[in-house]
Amino acid sequence: MKRIVLAVMGLVALSAGANAQENTEAKKDSVKVRYIYTMQTDDNCMPGIERNHVIFINENVTTHVIMPENIKLVDMSTDKIVGNQCADNIVRIKPSARMRDHELVGTITVIGERHLAQYDVVYTAGPACANSIYRIQLDEMKRYKNPDVLMPESEMAAYAWAIYGSQPNYNNIHYTANGIRAVVNNIYTVNDYYFIDYSLYNRTKIKYDIDEVRIKLTDKKEAKATNSQTIELTPTYSLNSAHSFKKAYRNVIVLPKLTFPDEKVLRIEIAERQISGRVIYIPIEYEDILNADGFDKGLLRRLPFNINR
């Protein structure tokens, strides 16, 4: 009798073991493969990623990447990221479709006038975790040599704003006509550029509508029109984009360094939009250009804002 009971118990144990093995194999077959991304961070949106080197995107959010200088080129490593440059220093991107949460989509490289920055782009399933605006910080950019850009536009703007707020040092360059007085406040040299600061004062009750501002290198004496030679120059940067003023107007324009003979004069022409004949000329002698002051870079720290924000 004991032998029969032991035999039955053995069969039950073997059967249970076989069933357990079958259940284990079935569970293995039902387990789906999961991809684990091993980047490290404590961020709630994406554990394992340092957010200051990653841009998070979602199909319901347009991500705007803002660079402190003008953007020359944007490279996206995959067609899973779509976008375009919507302003001089702004590019907008989105994923082309829905993806896995925390999926590393690709990389984006933003190349500016003198710097470049590269980021990993990660998809997040939560729109609240996506970057709607990502501002590129200075410590995230790498500098490169660009022979076509001697000074980034953001740096020109910083100098121009500082000069705009400075006290006038010149008082011998002026012109008056039709109730408008034009004066040169300052001429500064910074690296390979001249910064010319000038003002217009309207003594009439009719506002002055600016049609265009032209800079010309022309002869002092134009005895014969056929012999006169005029060269038109294009400013590299202009601070004030206002098109009209009632009483006063001030602007800072930037020109590349230039030399010209004493027979020539650098002339700024401000023409009115209407057919009124009111055209203002500001003649600048070469001697005045040679006496341009070097600008104190320490004055940039006095600006009430950070030009790179």
Rank of each mutant, 00 (worst) to 15 (best):
H115L: 05
E272T: 08
N60C: 01
P235D: 08
A18M: 11
N23I: 06
P304L: 00
Y249T: 10
P95C: 09
G126I: 05
S132L: 08
H115K: 11
T189P: 01
Y201V: 04
R302K: 14
E50V: 14
A160Y: 04
K297L: 07
R214L: 12
R143F: 10
T107N: 11
D120G: 09
I284M: 08
E272Y: 01
K247L: 05
I206K: 09
Y193I: 07
N172H: 13
T176N: 09
R203A: 12
F245R: 02
I270T: 04
A97V: 01
V149N: 00
N60S: 12
A18E: 04
N291R: 15
F295A: 03
K2S: 08
V254R: 02
V31F: 06
Y194I: 04
V61N: 00
H53Q: 15
V254C: 13
I180G: 05
G165T: 09
P95E: 00
Q167C: 02
V184K: 05
D219T: 09
Y281V: 04
Y123T: 09
Q40F: 04
A97S: 12
K28N: 13
M1C: 06
L255C: 08
V122H: 02
S199H: 01
V74Y: 00
D43S: 15
N171M: 06
K221Q: 15
T38D: 03
T226M: 09
Y37A: 02
D88Y: 10
I187N: 00
E50F: 01
Y188H: 13
M156T: 08
S241A: 12
K207T: 03
Y281T: 07
L150C: 07
K297A: 08
N58E: 10
I187P: 00
K145G: 03
K224I: 09
N185K: 07
R34F: 05
L266K: 13
T204G: 05
A16E: 03
T41L: 09
Y188E: 06
V121I: 15
V184W: 07
I81C: 02
R203E: 14
L266Q: 12
V33W: 01
H243T: 15
A13H: 01
E222L: 08
Y159M: 00
N70Q: 13
N185D: 15
N291H: 14
E25L: 09
G165Y: 13
H64I: 04
F245L: 06
N172G: 03
I270C: 02
V31S: 03
V252K: 02
E222P: 07
R278K: 14
L150R: 11
R273Q: 11
K142C: 01
R51T: 13
G277P: 04
P127D: 09
N70I: 10
N308T: 15
T236W: 06
D293S: 13
G48T: 10
S30D: 08
T78V: 12
P261N: 12
N191F: 09
A125R: 12
A130H: 05
T226I: 15
I55F: 03
V190C: 07
A160D: 06
S166Y: 02
E212Q: 10
Y164E: 08
T38Q: 01
D42G: 11
R135V: 04
L290D: 12
T234P: 12
Q85R: 10
Q85P: 08
P304K: 02
I36K: 05
A157L: 12
E222S: 14
